[in-house]
């Protein structure tokens, strides 16, 4: 499931605007497969953490109500151009993904 994740981070004044696009089906466990009529088991991202230069800036927990291929935007005051943003996620099946980007 390790599909690529995209991060874009730009400085606007002294605030870094970070946008993350994750690739994930985000199944709620309530949807039925159109062909088989069986419920599609829940499969969704549960935990997302973001760090800038190794320091934690955001820890998000997702429920099943987050849309497929989740988008997450947040703003951090203080970092500089060239700082490194790292985003990790873990889903309910234990799959993980990580990506990093440089603030530009």
């Amino acid at each position: 499931m390790a599909e690529p994740m995209r991060i874009r981070a730009t400085m606007a004044g002294d605030v870094a605007d970070v946008k993350v696009l994750m690739n994930h089906p985000m199944e709620t466990g309530l949807r039925k497969d159109a062909k088989t009529g069986q419920l599609v088991p829940a499969h969704f991202i549960q935990d997302v953490t973001a760090t800038i230069n190794g320091a934690a800036v955001l820890n998000a927990d997702f429920g099943t109500g987050i849309s497929k291929n989740p988008y997450l935007g947040f703003k951090v005051k203080g970092p500089k151009k060239g700082d490194k943003v790292v985003v990790n996620w873990v889903d309910n099946k234990g799959d993980k993904n990580s990506a990093e980007a440089t603030i530009g």
Binding site: L58, A60, F62, I66, P70, F74
Partner: peptide, 26 residues
């Protein structure tokens, strides 16, 4: 009114501002 109303929780640390942008299911 979602089957499970809580969509997401976000904890800020170290300079992160009170701002979150996301896309949810309803």
């Amino acid at each position: 009114k979602n089957a499970t109303p809580l969509v997401g929780t976000y904890n800020m640390a170290g300079g992160t501002q009170g701002y979150i942008s996301t896309r949810i299911k309803m």
